[in-house]
């Protein structure tokens, strides 16, 4: 696999930020109640990681080593503020539902982790691709969890009723646990379980 393709594809599976690096779990638990929420959150994180990686990679030779964290944070905070204002202007309902978690992308370990681990030592184009890849790796897990939670918690997908009325008349009930954020920790745990039982290289025995 070529290096550029690897940068994009690896974070989706074998180096996934949530299931393998176990970063950014906090927001993944909180905002995944529906697919729409997961999608918006995922896109926001892709935007932030990509552009933050690009910016820091461009500045990497100018940033003094001692204050690099502060500089990185300023860049991230600027991008997150942009996203937050954009959401408030164009997707007000969703931004109210995501509430504080858009702002908390600043503290999302994935963004900071990629800046420190990758952008500080690589050229702008690979850094951009790495940011997009990791953002997508985050988004894909969010969407999987969001889809399961929305399907079993509300019987819907993207707001459309998927489970027919007849099933409800038969005695089926929506699963109230899926509405609670606690269900995502079980779901992410099960995803990690499945992934590691299929790919033995990911199992670290310590």
């Amino acid at each position: 696999m070529s290096d550029t393709k690897k940068l994009l594809v690896d974070p989706l599976s074998t180096n996934n930020p949530i299931t393998v690096q176990v970063l950014g779990v906090c927001s993944a638990l909180a905002v995944t109640s529906t697919i729409a929420n997961s999608l918006v959150m995922g896109v926001a994180v892709i935007f932030v990681t990509a552009l933050a990686n690009l910016t820091i990679s461009l500045l990497r030779n100018l940033i003094p080593g001692r204050i690099r964290m502060i500089v990185q944070l300023v860049v991230i905070a600027f991008l997150v503020t942009l996203v937050s204002i954009f959401l408030k202007a164009f997707l007000y309902d969703l931004s109210k539902e995501l509430s504080v978690f858009v702002g908390l992308i600043i503290t999302n370990c994935i963004v900071m982790g990629r800046l420190e681990a990758f952008a500080m030592g690589n050229k702008p184009i690979p850094a951009l691709l790495d940011g997009v890849g990791n953002g997508m790796g985050y988004a894909i897990i969010l969407i999987i969890v969001g889809a399961i939670r929305e399907l079993f918690g509300a019987g819907q997908l993207m707001g459309f009723q998927v489970i027919p009325e007849a099933v409800y008349n038969f005695g089926y009930e929506n699963n109230g646990l899926m509405v609670l954020p606690i269900s995502s920790i079980f779901l992410i745990g099960i995803i990690i379980w499945i992934q590691r039982s299929r790919d033995k290289e990911l199992v670290d025995i310590s």
């Binding site: 009930e173 699963n175 109230g176 646990l177 899926m178 609670l180 606690i182």
Partner: peptide
């Protein structure tokens, strides 16, 4: 506990 939180009405 699972039923208690998942299907409280039951």
């Amino acid at each position: 506990v699972f039923i208690f939180f998942a299907y409280p009405s039951s």
